[in-house]
Structure formats: structure tokens, C-alpha cells
Amino acid sequence: MDQPTETLTNAQGRDENHAAELSVILPTFNEAANVPLVLDLLRKTLVGVRWEAIIVDDNSPDGTTDVGRAIAATDAQVRVIRRIGRRGLSGACIEGMLASSAPYVAVMDADLQHDETLLPKMLAELRTGDYDLAVASRKVEGGAVGEGLSKVRAWGSNIANGLAQKLLNVSLTDPMSGFFMVRREKAEELAPKLSAQGFKILLDLVSSAGGTLRIKELPFTFKERLHGESKLDTLVTLDYFGLLMAKYFGNVVSVRFLMFGLVGASGLFVHLLALKLFLDMAGLEFNLAQTGASFVAMTSNFFLNNQLTYRDRRLTGLKVLIGLLTFYAVCSVGVLANVGVANLIYSDPTYWWFAGAAGAIMGAVWNYAASSALTWRKS
């Protein structure tokens, strides 16, 4: 007589015969101290739920990947994806969602600022079949920013929310939220439309869906980070506006190109300022002043692009100097076009600004193509 099949369990005594119903995606960068804590909280919160955690780490120098793998070695509910040569919250979230086979996937920060006790409530809403997406909102009744954001960041978040709602017709009260749960089939369907760059995966997801997602918002309070530093810096503002513009124009151009364009716009200001200084204070003749201003703007653009546009391919150490020299070299043709066009236009000193701007714009297209292919080429 056949013996009954013995149920397999892992070190925590959980049933391993059934696939996970819920995958919790934890995008990480330098979260070694927080990963064990957030996993403990998930174990306490998701009792009775077949779940797994997928840690997607951007090759953190603090050993986040090693910490996650050490836990995964004794807990089959934890998986780790280590990304080499790729960085960015949105890209990590997309890879994590596509690595899941569970019917539901949740995205939450690993820094303990998101309230994990909301996960069962989100899951319950999606299980009803009435909703495709459950979002943790700080803006609905009962939600609050709490101590997790400074006054300046809270103010900026409100402005960003308003722009998203007006420009993209997004009905979410908190489109800047990074804490949500979605049916995996919907995430799979929308994945080809999503940008791997940037930080606002929820906004991208909802705007890409074009109003087809059935959404439930649940209140939550944003908590204060315990360990590590926030990944949000001032340059993320440009990144966010790039995403807004890309979505507003129907993804006709990539977010990266728009980022390059925004940096180029700042470079235009730097160029004109330097040109004015060279003409008035240094007393240089126009051709020499225009050339000098071009290199000042190129230097500014290089460092901004390295920090923002190509943050997933960011150059560090000696590669920064090599990259800068390469940037100068590949853009030399753009400089020649820049100076040539500007010189053709410049006849009346009153219109120095128009001549300078025309020359700078002429070189922009070449600069983007050459720098993408050579300076920040994919390794």
C-alpha cells in the first residue's frame, strides 16, 4: 500500500508544496541593515498567506546582496536578484515583478517606511476580483505623511502629485506613492510600456494603463527611516519631470532622451552665462568666447548626465576622467557645428544670445547620439 506523501516544509515550518500567492518585491540599494528587519515584519504580518519576498539589489556596496542570500539559504520564501550594470528603482521593480509567478505582486520599500500591515488588506481587496491595483495612499482620509518626509520633501511631493493629476489625468490621490499591490497579469501586460529609468513606477504603471485599471486606495502613514540614507536627491526632480513629459507625449521619445534634453536645457543656460562673461569680462572675440562657453557647458552637461541621465551606467573613479575626455572628443563635431552655425548668425552684437543658442542647439543631437554610444556605452 502506498505511503501518504509527506508534506515538505522549510526551516520556518511553512508549506512548500504550494506556489506563492503573493510576491513582495523589495528593490534595494545599500539596505543591508534593513533587509533582515523587513523580512521579519513580513513573516509576522503575512501569517496564513503563501508569500515570497524577491529582493532586487542594484549591486549594493554595503553587502545587501550577501545579507539577502544568507537569509535565502535557510528560508525558501526569500529570493535574491543581483543586478550588475543596471540601476534604478523602476527597473528593479519591473524585473522583480516579471520574475514572479504569483497571481499578485506587491512593491514596497525595504527601508521600513512603508506599513507592512497594509499588505493583507491590499490582498483582500484584490482577491474580491473588483480591483486590479491596491495603492497605499497618504492623501486619502486616514492617511498621513507622518515623520517620513521633511517639510520641503512633503511640499515637493504635493506639487508633483498635482502635476501628475493635471498633465496625465491620473485620478490617484497619491500618484507618488511607491507602495502598492497589483495583479501580476496586469503588470505583465503593461511591462513593455514601462520605463526602467526613474523612481515613480506607480505613476508609470497607472498612466501607461490609460484608465483601464480598477484601483482601490487605502490609507497609510509614511514612517521614518531607521537605517541608511534616502535614495532621493534633488536630481530626481528632473527625472520625474522627464517621466511626466514622456507620458504626456505618449512615449514618442524615451525618458532618457528627455533627461538628456533637460540637462541640455540647463547647459544652454550655463553656455549663455559663460558666453556673456567671456565677451564682457574677459573681452574675448566672439568665436573664442563661443568655443570656451561650449566647453564650459559640455563639462556641466557631462557631470549632470552622469548623475541623472545615465545613473544606471554611472561612471566612477578614474572612469569619470576618461569619460569626460571621451565626452569632449565625441562632441567635438558638435562643437564645430555649434561654433560654425553661431558664427554665421552672429552679425549684430545685440543678438549674441540668439547666435549662441542656435549654435548650442545644433550640437545637441550629435552630443546625445555620440555620448550614448561611446561615453556611457553599455558594458
Rank of each mutant, 00 (worst) to 15 (best):
T5V: 12
E6G: 13
N10E: 09
A11G: 05
A11Q: 06
S23I: 05
I25R: 10
P36N: 14
V38N: 04
E52G: 02
I54D: 02
I55P: 04
N59R: 10
T64P: 03
V67R: 00
G68A: 11
T74D: 06
D75P: 08
V80Q: 08
R83Q: 15
G85T: 05
R86Q: 15
S90L: 00
A92N: 10
E95H: 10
L119T: 01
G129S: 05
D132Y: 04
L149W: 15
S150L: 14
N161F: 07
A164Y: 03
L172F: 10
F180I: 03
L194C: 03
L205N: 01
L205D: 02
S207P: 08
S207H: 01
G210A: 06
G210P: 04
G211F: 13
L213G: 00
R214E: 14
F222R: 01
D239E: 05
D239M: 07
L243G: 01
L244W: 08
L258F: 06
G261W: 02
L262C: 10
S266M: 13
L268A: 10
F269R: 06
F269E: 08
H271R: 08
L273G: 14
A274Y: 00
A274N: 01
G283P: 01
L288V: 10
F295R: 07
S300T: 10
N301K: 13
L308T: 05
I322E: 08
Y328A: 08
Y328W: 11
A329W: 09
S332F: 12
V333D: 07
G340R: 00
L344D: 03
P349D: 06
Y351S: 08
G356Y: 00
A370R: 02
